Deep mutational scan, measured.
Amino acid sequence: MASQGTKRSYEQMETDGERQNATEIRASVGKMIDGIGRFYIQMCTELKLSDYEGRLIQNSLTIERMVLSAFDERRNKYLEEHPSAGKDPKKTGGPIYKRVDRKWMRELVLYDKEEIRRIWRQANNGDDATAGLTHMMIWHSNLNDTTYQRTRALVRTGMDPRMCSLMQGSTLPRRSGAAGAAVKGVGTMVMELIRMIKRGINDRNFWRGENGRKTRSAYERMCNILKGKFQTAAQRAMMDQVRESRNPGNAEIEDLIFLARSALILRGSVAHKSCLPACVYGPAVASGYDFEKEGYSLVGIDPFKLLQNSQVYSLIRPNENPAHKSQLVWMACNSAAFEDLRVLSFIRGTKVSPRGKLSTRGVQIASNENMDAMESSTLELRSRYWAIRTRSGGNTNQQRASAGQISVQPAFSVQRNLPFDKPTIMAAFTGNTEGRTSDMRAEIIRMMEGAKPEEMSFQGRGVFELSDERAANPIVPSFDMSNEGSYFFGDNAEEYDN
């Protein structure tokens, strides 16, 4: 993207840094990872977990959730003011799984939030270390993106479920800051804005008074975040219109849905970061690795190297396929839920299948599930090659597409044709070009129609051997075009429920 120079890199967003050079960025990201790792080690000690239990991804998720809940100030305040039966607002906890007599047992633990905050700050040299908290939120978000298709949420806001490739980060909490905003897809931002506008339509006082002023500035800020994701002048001009509207209503909703559809071809720039579970960072720190000293990046080879040398386990339900569970977590670790499966298959070195073909449910185990038949197995999170994460949407291309997802959002900077089903997408653009945004709409449609099938995206960008740390010898991959490109292809993934 041309304006790259004016933006802070995501590592800076990730670490609240002012302008830093590459070495400083690597050190501050490393410091953040160190903090998460030290916190995780301490929690495993508190909970008396064995090494194996500490490497269980379900335990990692519970521990991450506990610290996120302990620092969720708004919710904590709300819980104190609106006490609900049987919930102690000062405590947080969740299921911890232990191996007892050759069987997995679930144990519900409860801790004072104050105590968890103390352990977290102690692991982070006394700081609140917001960057580390956001990092864990993005890992949870990436896992949700890989596990669930947001059909219901899309339909509720009037969008087409086939636009799911635009929904990265749709389950990120509001408090995820600049680093969170960077990884949100165009569809996620559109959905947040539509929800806001709908509230304004239904509630006369939404934009009024002292609160209304705050609401208005939040609305304009979200519009600017979305505008910054678009790469064409016409899309940005249309966002200006939406932002400046005196009284946002149905016309703005129409414009936003139009823009979301246009992003299936004229893709937005959305950041991709490899955020790993805390149970990967903990053992690495415990083994003596100093992330701050060595430096770390979320968008280069580092996460690949770390996963190459990590042992992570997962509980497996009786009829689940461990290899499929591994694929789910591998995609989440690489922030690749909406990437082209052919690119992923090449990088991973084994075939990556669409969601609907995987015999696996989510990673988390519900409290009512029976533990008797639970097994555990090693997650295979290694890769054959590594590639640089991208934040450009890439230019655009036609490809055989599917009944489910009709476009992709690249996660890796790797040369390819970008699949999208042009006739299906263009069919949504018939007729409606009147109104105050008509010239911009016409211009956007013209650009979409001009998108050429034979153009290559990320020209000359390749993948790298894991021994090639400096990215000196790019390998331009070859793809098996007979395979499906979309992950949520004609899909039956479970729906995400809060």
Results as ranks from 00 to 15, higher is better:
N125T: 11
G356D: 10
A271Y: 10
K77A: 13
D34P: 00
A373G: 06
L108R: 06
T147Y: 06
S170R: 09
V155S: 14
A251Y: 09
S60M: 11
I365W: 13
S376D: 03
S478C: 01
Q20A: 00
M447V: 13
A2E: 04
R102D: 01
T433L: 15
I347C: 11
S402L: 06
N432A: 14
S402A: 13
G431V: 10
I253G: 05
H135I: 05
R175S: 10
Y40L: 04
V352R: 03
D240A: 13
Q42N: 03
N368K: 13
G282N: 04
L110M: 06
Q231V: 10
D255Q: 08
D240I: 11
N205M: 05
A472C: 03
E192C: 06
P318W: 08
R221K: 13
K293V: 04
V363C: 15
L315A: 08
P318N: 03
I25D: 00
I225H: 08
S269R: 05
A411P: 01
A387S: 15
A286K: 05
N21S: 14
E469S: 10
K357M: 11
S359P: 04
V109E: 13
F230R: 00
Y385E: 02
G30S: 10
R150Q: 09
Q241S: 04
A271L: 08
K293Y: 13
G249N: 05
E192K: 10
K91M: 07
I406R: 07
L298K: 09
I301M: 12
F71G: 08
H82V: 08
F206N: 11
D127G: 12
F412G: 01
N205C: 14
R382Q: 04
R246N: 13
Q409L: 00
R102H: 12
S141Y: 08
K31C: 12
R199I: 06
F489T: 14
A234Y: 04
P410T: 04
S353N: 02
P95A: 14
H82R: 10
I36M: 15
W330Y: 07
R236Y: 01
D51P: 10
A233M: 13
V352G: 09
G35L: 06
G94C: 08
Q308D: 03
R174E: 10
P173Y: 06
N309S: 13
Y97P: 03
K98W: 09
V190P: 03
Y40G: 03
Q364T: 15
M448N: 06
R400V: 02
G300R: 05
D468P: 09
A323W: 00
P248I: 02
R216H: 13
S353Y: 02
D491L: 02
P410R: 01
P173M: 03
M238Y: 01
W104N: 04
T15L: 15
T23V: 06
G35Q: 02
C333M: 15
V343K: 11
G362H: 08
G435Q: 05
A237W: 00
P477Q: 01
K7H: 01
P95S: 13
L193N: 14
M191V: 09
A286T: 06
I316M: 15
K357S: 05
G93S: 12
S314W: 05
K184A: 10
R416H: 13
S377G: 10
K351V: 07
G295V: 06
R243H: 01
N368W: 01
V186S: 01
T171Q: 08
K325G: 00
G212K: 13
W207S: 03
R441H: 15
N59E: 07
K91T: 01
H140W: 08
S359D: 00
R221M: 10
Q241P: 04
Y97K: 15
M1C: 10
S176C: 05
I63E: 01
T390L: 02
R382P: 03
T424N: 13
R152A: 04
E252N: 10
E443Q: 14
I316W: 01
F258G: 11
D16M: 12
F458S: 06
F39G: 03
S467A: 01
M191S: 06
R99G: 12
I116K: 05
Q459N: 13
I475W: 02
G5D: 01
R317P: 06
F420P: 00
V312G: 03
N368E: 14
S314V: 12
A22T: 15
A218S: 15
A278E: 04
H82A: 04
R416Q: 12
Y111A: 04
R121V: 07
R221Y: 07
I201P: 02
S377L: 13
S176P: 01
T62A: 11
P410G: 06
A387G: 15
T134W: 04
L110F: 09
L298Y: 01
R74S: 12
G37E: 15
E210T: 10
F346S: 10
E339V: 11
E107P: 06
P318D: 05
W207D: 09
S392F: 07
L418E: 00
M222C: 13
L193H: 00
Q20M: 03
Q364N: 06
V100Y: 10
P318Y: 11
G462A: 11
A472K: 05
N319Q: 13
S217E: 00
S314T: 13
L381D: 08
K325V: 06
R361P: 02
A427K: 00
S9L: 15
A263K: 01
W139R: 07
F39I: 04
Q231I: 12
F338N: 11
A284K: 15
L307G: 08
V352L: 14
T151F: 05
Q327K: 12
T424S: 12
A427F: 01
R391A: 02
Q311P: 00
R55T: 07
M167Q: 09
W330K: 10
I138L: 14
D240W: 07
F258P: 04
D240Q: 07
F464P: 15
A178M: 12
A233W: 03
S297M: 03
F304L: 12
Y78I: 12
V29R: 10
R74I: 02
R436K: 10
R150L: 13
A403C: 13
G362W: 09
M238D: 06
K90N: 14
F479M: 01
D16P: 01
I33F: 04
L108I: 10
D34A: 14
L418H: 02
C333R: 00
S376C: 11
I225W: 11
G349W: 10
A472T: 15
L133F: 05
P277F: 05
R8W: 10
M448V: 04
E443A: 06
A271F: 10
S69N: 12
R446T: 14
L61M: 05
K198E: 03
E11R: 10
L143H: 13
E114A: 09
D112H: 11
Y219I: 03
S345M: 06
G86T: 10
E339A: 03
E107C: 05
W207L: 09
G404E: 02
T62S: 15
T430H: 01
I257P: 01
L56D: 03
A373T: 13
R261A: 05
S482T: 02
M448A: 06
P283I: 14
A284F: 14
K91Q: 04
N473Q: 15
G485V: 12
M371E: 02
N250G: 12
F479V: 03
G393H: 04
S141R: 04
R470S: 11
D240F: 02
A427M: 11
K98I: 05
E73W: 11
M440T: 08
L266I: 15
V67L: 05
F429N: 00
K31Y: 00
G54T: 14
I301L: 15
V155I: 13
L226C: 09
L256M: 13
G185L: 07
G17E: 03
E107D: 15
I225S: 12
D203E: 12
R99Y: 13
S310A: 15
M371F: 01
E454H: 05
R208F: 02
I265G: 04
T157D: 08
T390I: 00
K229Y: 04
S310P: 05
I36H: 06
P419A: 12
F230D: 03
D16N: 11
R99P: 02
T378S: 15
I197V: 13
V67W: 05
D112E: 12
M371S: 11
F420Y: 12
R99F: 03
A263Y: 01
R382N: 07
D340N: 14
L315F: 12
K98F: 06
S376V: 11
L110N: 04
V329W: 13
T45S: 15
M196N: 08
G30C: 12
S176K: 03
A129D: 00
G209T: 05
A442D: 01
S297Y: 04
N59Y: 01
S84G: 13
L264R: 01
Q308Y: 00
V363S: 08
A366V: 01
V109I: 13
A181Y: 10
